[in-house]
C-alpha cells in the first residue's frame, strides 16, 4: 500500500482547517476533489488517506477523529487536539467569561438527573446570571445561540440544550478527565453516549446509541440485552421531554475539580504531561463487538 504524503493530502488539510468538523460524505467529497485538483497518480483509499494525514498531524498534537452523530448515526469527522494545552484554547473564539459559562453548561448537562444529559434554556440562562461578572438574559441568549451556531451545543425544538458531537469529539479528553465517573460509554461502540437507550433492568449497565442499538438488534432474532441477557426493553438516555433539571448526586469530587481548575489556569504552554494519558485512553477504546 502506498502512503506517500502528497499535495492531495495537503490540499485536503488546508480545506478542512477552516471548518474542522464535517460529515464523512463531505470528507469523501473533499478527498475526491483533492485528488482531482492535484492529479496525483495512484491515489490512496480514503481510510488510508486519513491515516497518512494523521501520521503527520500527530507530530503537532492534532488528529482527524471519526465518530457518529448521536441522533442520526451519521458518520462525522473532526480535526481535534490531542492535548488540552493553553494554545489550544486560542482556537476558541470566546472570551474567558464565555468559556467559563460554556464549562458550567457542560457541567449542568453532564450532571443532569436521570441520564437526561441536557439543560433547559431557563436553567441555562439562570446559570448565566450567577456568573461573576454575570451575563444578562439577552446576552446569555445570544451566547447560547452562538454555541449552537458554532456547533458546540445542540438545541432541540423544545429549547433544550445538549452536547454536540463536536464537543464530544473535540473535548473528549477534558470531558473524560472532569467527569470520568459520570459519563456513559456505549456498550457496543465504547464512545461516549449522551443520547440513546438504556436497559430497563435497573442494575444493568447496558447503554446504546440509537444507531448502535438498531445495528445490533436488526441483525439477530433474539431481542435480549447483550449484558444481562434479559429481554430487551429500553429507557431513553438524553432529552426525553422532561428536561434534566436537578443535578445528580454523583457530582465530580473535589479532587477532580481542583485538578481540572488548575489545568485551566495553567499559563505554561510547554508544561503538559497529559499526552500519554490521552494515548492510553485511545488505546483502551475497543471497538470490537
Amino acid at each position: 500500500m502506498n502512503n506517500e504524503y502528497t499535495d492531495a493530502h495537503r490540499l485536503f488539510l488546508q480545506a478542512s482547517l477552516s471548518e474542522r468538523f464535517f460529515t464523512e460524505a463531505t470528507a469523501i467529497e473533499l478527498y475526491n476533489k483533492a485528488y482531482e485538483a492535484t492529479d496525483v497518480q495512484d491515489p490512496e483509499a480514503f481510510t488510508g488517506f486519513i491515516a497518512t494525514i494523521n501520521t503527520k498531524l500527530n507530530t503537532i498534537d492534532l488528529e482527524f477523529r471519526k465518530s457518529h452523530e448521536e441522533e442520526t448515526g451519521t458518520a462525522v469527522w473532526a480535526l481535534v487536539n490531542t492535548n488540552g494545552d493553553e494554545i489550544a484554547k486560542l482556537a476558541t473564539e470566546y472570551t474567558p467569561i464565555e468559556i467559563t459559562y460554556f464549562r458550567r453548561l457542560i457541567e449542568l448537562i453532564v450532571t443532569a438527573e436521570d441520564e437526561a444529559f441536557s439543560v433547559s434554556s431557563i436553567l441555562a440562562l439562570k446559570e448565566a446570571s450567577k456568573l461573576k461578572p454575570s451575563i444578562s438574559k439577552s446576552n446569555g441568549e445570544t451566547l447560547l445561540q452562538r454555541f449552537v451556531d458554532d456547533k458546540w451545543l445542540n438545541k432541540s425544538r423544545g429549547g433544550i440544550y445538549s452536547l454536540s458531537q463536536r464537543t464530544i469529539l473535540e473535548l473528549q479528553h477534558f470531558l473524560k478527565e472532569e467527569f470520568e465517573d459520570i459519563l456513559l460509554e456505549c456498550t457496543l461502540c465504547f464512545d461516549i453516549v449522551t443520547k440513546g437507550q438504556r436497559c430497563k433492568v435497573a442494575q444493568c449497565k447496558a447503554r446504546f446509541h440509537h444507531h448502535c442499538a438498531h445495528r445490533y438488534f436488526d441483525s439477530r432474532n433474539d431481542k435480549a440485552c447483550p449484558t444481562c441477557k434479559i429481554d430487551w426493553d429500553s429507557n431513553i438516555i438524553g432529552d426525553n421531554g422532561s428536561s434534566g433539571s436537578v443535578s445528580r448526586i454523583r457530582k465530580p469530587n473535589n479532587r477532580t475539580m481542583t485538578r481540572v481548575t488548575r489545568r485551566f489556569q495553567e499559563t505554561e504552554v510547554g508544561d503538559n504531561d497529559n499526552d500519554n494519558d490521552e494515548m492510553n485512553q485511545d488505546g483502551d477504546d475497543g471497538d470490537d463487538f
Partner: peptide, 13 residues
C-alpha cells in the same frame, strides 16, 4: 467501530 482508524494511526505514529 468509529475509533478504529484513529487508534491505528495513534499507535503507528
Amino acid at each position: 467501530g468509529p475509533s478504529r482508524p484513529t487508534r491505528r494511526t495513534a499507535l503507528g505514529n
